[in-house]
Amino acid sequence: MTVFFTSDTHFGHGGARGRFRRPFETTAAMDAAMAANWNAVVGPDDEVWHLGDFALHLAADAMAERLRGLNGVKHLVAGNNDGPATLALPGWASVRHYAELTLDGTALVLCHYPFRTWNGMHRKALNLHGHSHGQLKGLPRQIDVGVDVWNFRPVTLAELAAPRRRARQAATPAP
């Protein structure tokens, strides 16, 4: 089992294409590419921590269908655009506003929002977050896991720690 992190997919949110300069012709193309990119790296038994803003402007049944179509065991750390319908989706293994976990010996503090300080920051704990869409200069050991930073797909801790961290790449088209 591999553990992945992502945030700010904004499935169904046409405004995300312009506001965050996403390179997709339509919202449907954006959603399809992100789902294909997700499923290309995440297997059915892998774990994904989605750090908020899963979808916007989608009906509950459409959100449920989108979530059901994404591989992995999915946890939601709620974001500012995750309303009651998103939080209640049956496809989440867990829903919370904050989480701490240790992965491969690394302490992680997970929240939708970037922190100024966080538990264990002086003991090398990482703050993984979303919300800023790659537009905020992070602090040391603070990483934006949003799709706008990571080729519109979930990423592993090893990828997050790699030297080329935070380099925005061109979107991978859906197969």
Rank of each mutant, 00 (worst) to 15 (best):
D104R: 04
Y113Q: 11
N127Y: 01
V155I: 10
A125T: 06
G138P: 15
A99M: 10
D144E: 10
F152W: 12
G134M: 02
F115M: 12
G120L: 05
M121I: 11
L139T: 01
G130Y: 03
L136V: 13
I143R: 05
L101E: 12
L101D: 07
F152L: 15
R116Q: 12
G138L: 10
H122M: 06
V155A: 01
L110H: 02
V149C: 12
W150Y: 12
D104E: 15
F152H: 11
I143K: 00
R153Q: 05
P154N: 03
G134Y: 02
I143G: 02
D144C: 10
D148N: 09
A99S: 09
P154K: 11
C111T: 07
L103E: 06
T117S: 13
L128W: 05
P154V: 02
S132V: 05
R141S: 15
G134A: 07
S132G: 14
P154R: 12
L126R: 00
H133F: 11
G120M: 04
T156K: 04
T106Q: 09
F115R: 07
Q135V: 15
L139I: 14
G105H: 01
R116P: 12
G146I: 09
L139R: 11
H133L: 04
G120W: 01
N151R: 08
L103K: 06
N127S: 12
L128N: 06
A107E: 07
L136A: 09
L101C: 15
G130P: 04
C111N: 08
L128D: 08
N127G: 14
Q135M: 10
A107P: 09
R153L: 13
N127H: 07
G130E: 00
W118F: 03
H129W: 02
H131V: 14
K124L: 13
D144P: 15
C111D: 09
N119M: 15
R123I: 02
H133T: 05
H133P: 02
P140A: 09
D148G: 10
K124Q: 12
F152S: 02
